[in-house]
Structures are given as C-alpha cells and as structure tokens.
Amino acid sequence: MMQTSETLSRPRAGADLKAALADRAHALGFESMRITRPDAIPQAAGRLRAFLAKGRHGTMDWMAANAERRGDPRTLWPEVRSVVMLAMSYAPETDPMQALTNRHIGIISTYAKRSDYHDVMKGKLKELAGLIERDTGAPVKVFVDTAPLMEKPLAAAAGIGWQGKHTNLVSRDGGSWFFLGAVLSAADLEPDAPEVDHCGSCSRCLDVCPTNAFPAPYQLDARRCIAYLTIEHKGHIPEEFREPIGNRIFGCDDCLAVCPWNKFAAAAHESRLEIKHELDNPPLADLLTLDDAAFRARFRGTPVKRTGRDRVVRNCLIAAGNSHNPALLPLVETLLNDASPLVRAMAVWAYRRLAPAEAIGTARDRHAPAEPDPDVAREWA
C-alpha cells in the first residue's frame, strides 16, 4: 500500500517506533542504537563507591560530588522509564600508536583531533528525542557526557557492547572507538538484551599501559592514567610518569588501539568528525610557542581547548624533555620565564633533560625568579 504524508506522520509505537528510530539514528551517523531500563545497572553505584573510596579518581572532585546521583538515572530524573543509548564511531584509519616513535611531534588522542563531539552529537540526539516525544507523547531529556549519568554501564546493559578489561566499552561491530550519547524518555520503550563479555583471556590492553594504570582487570586507577594526567590533572605531573608519557600531549590511545576487536571497526563517516590537519600530531616546535591567544585560536571548537593553554604546554614540555632533540632547547628556555608556574616548572625539567650539564647551573642563575618559586626550585635541585 502506498504511504501518504498522513501515514508517514502518524505516531508509531512498539516495534514500528523502534525500527524508525534505528533507521533515523543510522541516517544521522550513529553506528548503534539500543534501549535499556533505568534500573538495569544496579551494580554500578557500588563499583563507583569502591573506586572513590580508594581515591582512584584523583583530583576529579566532581565525580565524588555527584556520586549518589550517578548510580541510577532515576535520581537524575525520576520520570525516566527508558534509556536510549547511541554510539557514534570515531575510528581512525591508521594505527595511532605508530606516532609514538616520532618524538618531534606531540600526540593528541584520536578523539580530540576533530570537532568537539558534544557539539556534533547533541543536535542529532535532540532530533531523535523529538521523534520519541512526538510518537509517544512523553517528555524526553538528552545527555552527551555532561551530566552524572554512567553512560558505559548503561550502554552495556542496552547491548551496544561490554566494558572491557580497560574499563572502556568494546563492541563486536565497532571495536573501542566510539562516542556515547543518551536520550532519557518517560515512555515505556521495549528494552534490548545486554551484551556479554567477549574479552576472554586477552590482556593486551592491560599489558600495553605505559604507567600500569590497571590494578587488576576491569579496574582503573586514574591517578596513573596518561589520559587523566594530561587532560584532567591540574597540577604538576609526578616525575615517575613523565618519561612514560613520551610524546603524548593530550590523552592516550594505547589500551584502545591494541584491542583485537578493532579489526571490525569501520572508519568514522560523520563529516564533522573528520580529523583536522592542524590537530593531527603537530610538531612540538609549533606548540611550544603558543601563548593563550594562539592556543585558543588553534584549538577552538575542539576538546583540547577546554584543558587550557598552560596544561597543554606543560604536557608539551614533558614531550620535549623526552624528545632528545636539542633543537628544542631555545624554545624550552624561553618558557623558563613563562607567567604560569605550572609551565615554568616543567620547562626546568625539560631544560635539564636537553641541555649540556655545564649549561644547567648558568641557566638556573640567569632565570632565577625575583620571588621564591618552590616548585621551580624543586625542579632545578
């Protein structure tokens, strides 16, 4: 029977609505759409409490502040009856670990080499939410990693994938490379079956970690994680982690990149998530010259911008210190007088790694601050 505009606009329900949502989600660039109940992750709250009790969240105080709200979506919105989880691929076309051997560049995590995924996904999620609201008459709410909602356990409960031994979500169809978004609905939508764990005896993600951030399978100590240290941590990076950081200046992809399920991941096809040339592991020599205005201009509209110039330059100085490239020494020396104490301290560390031994004492005297700076003094010592 021929469909008219009236039948196409008629509200749908049940399997018809679910099929229409899946079709529209795919057209919008999502690789997967699955549905779960808000009470589908009863174990998540206890796991989060144990994580926080051990201090493994580091300085991410926002996690502890909203801990009681994270374990159950109903504490976020009591009316919710269904959680629609969506995944969008950002799979790279090449192995990101290949860049680790080129110490003249700064490696930016694959997810951050493109436009901010929050901006890309939110409008698409709102469109899907509108379809649900129209066809069910029930209110909806949209979330993209901006609320105390545990997306990974919910996505596993919905059947998008499972939380692997590296604690990230893994899919048999998409590997480890995708963003997650959620639409919460007050409508009672048919849930999907959860995915089972397919990690088996594989431990590649645990074994590859440069800083031993996994105390055990399925457990992460963020305080040792390079992604946390280079993105979330606002202070000085402990010395024990600086050399293992290598030339990673924003995030770390190692545990994701070695997952064997990635062989099934198709490269990202959302045009707004294409890798930006200027973010594709730029030369350290360029990054070490960035002042705040230049930093904001270069990283506008990307996840890197939110971390801020001082922390990113701090990371670049660690990469410079690991580069064994004396050509970077003049740039590092300039940063010994930077306005940021965070930058100055790491400039000292990098300078000591790159400069001849006989030059260090002279440089220390030449760049002695007018007022005592204990962090800088500690790095010179």
Rank of each mutant, 00 (worst) to 15 (best):
F214M: 04
L220W: 15
P244N: 01
C225T: 05
F241D: 05
P244L: 02
P215Q: 04
P215H: 02
I226E: 04
E239G: 06
Y218S: 11
E232Y: 09
P215K: 06
L220T: 13
H236Y: 13
D254S: 13
H236K: 13
L256R: 15
R223H: 01
Q219T: 11
G235T: 10
P238R: 02
E240A: 10
R248Q: 15
T211V: 06
A222C: 15
Y228I: 02
A227I: 09
I231S: 02
G251E: 01
H236A: 14
T230S: 12
F250L: 06
T211F: 02
K234D: 12
P238H: 07
G246V: 08
P238D: 06
A222M: 12
K234E: 12
T230Y: 10
F241R: 03
P215S: 01
E243F: 07
H233M: 02
E243M: 05
P210Q: 08
L256Q: 15
F241T: 04
A216F: 02
P244Q: 03
F241Y: 15
T211G: 07
Y218G: 09
F250C: 02
F214K: 09
F214L: 13
P210I: 07
G246Y: 09
N247L: 12
I245C: 08
I231Y: 07
C255V: 08
I249D: 03
Y218A: 14
A213R: 12
D221I: 12
F241W: 10
G246I: 10
Q219P: 00
G251D: 05
P210S: 10
T211Q: 09
I245T: 14
N212L: 13
F250Q: 09
T230D: 04
E232Q: 13
C252D: 14
R242S: 00
A216L: 00
P244W: 01
N212C: 08
P215I: 03
E243R: 15
F214C: 02
I237V: 15
P215N: 07
D253C: 14
P210T: 07
G251V: 06
I226S: 06
G235E: 08
N212H: 15
P215L: 06
R248K: 15
N247C: 11
L256W: 15
C225G: 02
T230K: 12
E239L: 14
P215F: 11
E239P: 01
E240W: 00
